[in-house]
Simulated assay, not measured.
Amino acid sequence: MVSASPLQKLYNICNEVFDPCSAGIIPSPDNIQKLKAVLDDFKPADVGLSPEMPHSRASGAGETPPDFLYLKVKK
């Protein structure tokens, strides 16, 4: 059996934790702990990010790297 990728595990636990919730409802403490357990093991490399990437390094001394942009994906 092939193990799910970290990103797939995050997606699965988010569906489990947030699916039964409606607007304004906070997930149970047990469900929050499940989500926390997955996020605690999550690393930037799990989504293809690394410190060696050119756009994640500062261009000069004392500068901070540029912010990352994200796109909202429609389901």
Results as ranks from 00 to 15, higher is better:
Gln33Trp: 09
Lys34Asp: 08
Lys75Tyr: 12
Glu52Asp: 15
Leu35His: 02
Gly24Asn: 12
Lys34Tyr: 01
Phe42Met: 13
Gly48Tyr: 04
Leu69Arg: 13
Ala45Met: 00
Thr64Asn: 12
Ser3Gly: 15
Ile26Met: 12
Asp46Leu: 00
Asp19Met: 00
Phe18Val: 03
Asn12Ala: 12
Phe68His: 08
Val47His: 07
Phe68Pro: 04
Ala58His: 06
Ser59Arg: 10
Val47Gly: 12
Ala45Ile: 02
Pro27Lys: 08
Pro65Thr: 05
Lys34His: 10
Ser59Gly: 12
Phe42Asp: 11
Leu10His: 02
Asn31Tyr: 03
Phe18Thr: 03
Asp40Phe: 10
Asp40Asn: 12
Pro65Lys: 09
Ala23Trp: 07
Leu35Thr: 01
Gly24Met: 08
Pro65Leu: 04
Ser50Thr: 09
Asp46Cys: 06
Gln8Leu: 10
Pro51Thr: 02
Val73Asp: 13
Pro6Ser: 13
Gln8Cys: 01
Leu35Trp: 01
Asp30Lys: 06
Lys36Glu: 15
Pro44Phe: 01
Glu16Gly: 07
Gly60His: 10
Asp67Ala: 13
Cys14Tyr: 05
Ser50Arg: 10
Cys21Asp: 07
Asp41Met: 01
Asp46Gly: 02
Ser22Pro: 00
Ser50Asn: 11
Ala4Asp: 14
Ile13Met: 10
Gly60Ser: 13
Pro65Phe: 03
Lys9Arg: 10
Arg57Asp: 08
Pro6His: 08
Asp41Ser: 04
Ala4Tyr: 08
Lys34Phe: 01
Ala23Glu: 15
Leu10Thr: 01
Tyr11Ser: 04
Glu63Cys: 05
Met1Glu: 14
Gln8Tyr: 01
Pro51Cys: 02
Ala23Asn: 11
Leu35Arg: 00
Val38Ile: 13
Pro27Asp: 12
Val73Asn: 06
Pro20Glu: 11
Asp30Glu: 14
Thr64Val: 09
Lys74Cys: 11
Ser56Asp: 14
Leu71Gln: 12
Leu69Gln: 11
Cys14Asn: 08
Thr64Arg: 06
Ser28Trp: 02
Pro20Phe: 10
Leu39Arg: 02
Pro27Glu: 11
Gly24Tyr: 09
Asn15Pro: 03
Pro54Asp: 08
Ser5Cys: 12
Ile13His: 05
Phe42Ile: 00
Phe18Gln: 05
Leu69Phe: 12
Gly60Tyr: 04
Ser50Glu: 10
Arg57Phe: 05
Ile26Thr: 13
Ser50Phe: 01
Val38Ser: 03
Ala4Met: 14
Ile26Gln: 11
Leu71Arg: 08
Lys72Arg: 15
Ile32His: 07
Ile25Glu: 15
Ile32Thr: 05
Gly24Asp: 14
Lys34Gly: 03
Lys9Asn: 12
Asp41Glu: 10
Pro44Ile: 00
